[in-house]
Amino acid sequence: MTAQTLIVLSGLPGSGKSMLAEGVSRALSIPLFSIDPIEAAMWRGGLKKDQTGIAAYEVAIALADEQLRLGHSVIVDAVNPIEAPRAAWRSLAAKYRAGLKIIECICADETIHRARIEARRRNIPGMPEITWARVLERRAEYEPWTDARLTLDTSIETPDKLIAEAANYLR
């Protein structure tokens, strides 16, 4: 990848986006900002859980803005379930005339998706693990993307193959 790019990884909890974001960050040496650790830090800092959802996105936008201002590419790992955060990423990329690359992770096999959620332990201090019931609620709220993007079904490929496919898409 030669030009600065804002890379947005999107998808439901348990869809594999954080695994993919971390792998791509390592493979391409691009900084990564993830909503969940940002939000957990806000909770540890004393903010109430009902105050941090939008604020965590605002922090990620500010961090990504700084990297783009410096001429660097950046990866953002967030559910991005509705148009508002998606529009913010488009606006930020346009501000710096940076490329915008979206990767949407899905886990089409519901049995695998549920098993991932029920077994996962991310060890983000202060952040409880999400329940399958909450994932189903999030899925009902999740709006389809209309932007050009790479969609990866993380239930059918190995992490290494997914990371390689994403890295190729970004190059």
Rank of each mutant, 00 (worst) to 15 (best):
I117F: 05
G14N: 04
D147C: 05
G14Y: 07
Y142I: 03
V79M: 12
E22L: 12
I75L: 15
F33S: 00
C107A: 15
Q51V: 06
A56R: 03
E110M: 09
T111K: 15
L20N: 08
K101V: 01
K161R: 08
H113P: 02
I30F: 13
V135D: 09
D77A: 06
G126R: 00
N123Q: 11
T2L: 11
M19F: 04
P159I: 05
W145E: 12
I102P: 00
P159L: 03
K48W: 00
M19N: 05
L150A: 11
Y96F: 06
G46Y: 04
R149I: 11
L162I: 04
D160Y: 00
I7C: 10
S10L: 11
E165W: 03
I102Y: 03
G16T: 03
A115Y: 09
D65S: 08
E157V: 08
A119G: 08
L6W: 10
Y96T: 00
S34A: 15
M1T: 01
T52S: 15
D160Q: 14
P159D: 00
A21V: 06
V79I: 14
K161V: 05
V8I: 14
D65L: 08
R121V: 09
E22A: 13
G45T: 03
R171M: 15
I112P: 10
W145P: 09
C107S: 13
I156N: 01
R86K: 01
A167M: 09
T146L: 11
T52Q: 12
N168F: 02
Y96C: 06
R97Y: 08
A164I: 06
L20Y: 13
I82V: 14
L150T: 00
K49P: 05
I75C: 05
P128Y: 10
G16E: 03
A78Y: 06
A56F: 07
A164E: 15
P159Q: 01
A93L: 09
A166S: 09
A3W: 00
L6V: 08
P81V: 10
A133F: 02
R97I: 07
A167K: 14
L68V: 02
L6Y: 13
G46I: 03
Q67M: 15
A21L: 01
A87F: 06
L136G: 03
T5R: 11
A148T: 15
I112R: 12
A93S: 15
Y57N: 03
E104V: 07
A55Y: 07
H72A: 14
D160S: 13
I163P: 01
G46V: 06
P37L: 07
E141L: 14
R138H: 07
E66Q: 14
T131Y: 12
R138V: 08
L170T: 00
P85K: 11
R69M: 07
V74N: 02
I75D: 09
A27D: 10
D50H: 04
I54C: 04
W89A: 07
R26F: 09
A27N: 09
L47V: 01
S155P: 02
R90E: 11
M42E: 02
Q4A: 10
I103D: 04
A60L: 14
T131C: 12
G99R: 13
G16V: 05
M1L: 04
D109E: 10
L136E: 13
L170S: 00
V59Q: 04
S10I: 09
W145R: 13
A164N: 01
P128R: 15
E141Y: 06
T111F: 10
L162E: 01
G99S: 08
I38F: 04
V8F: 04
G23P: 03
R171E: 15
T5L: 04
I75Y: 09
D109C: 06
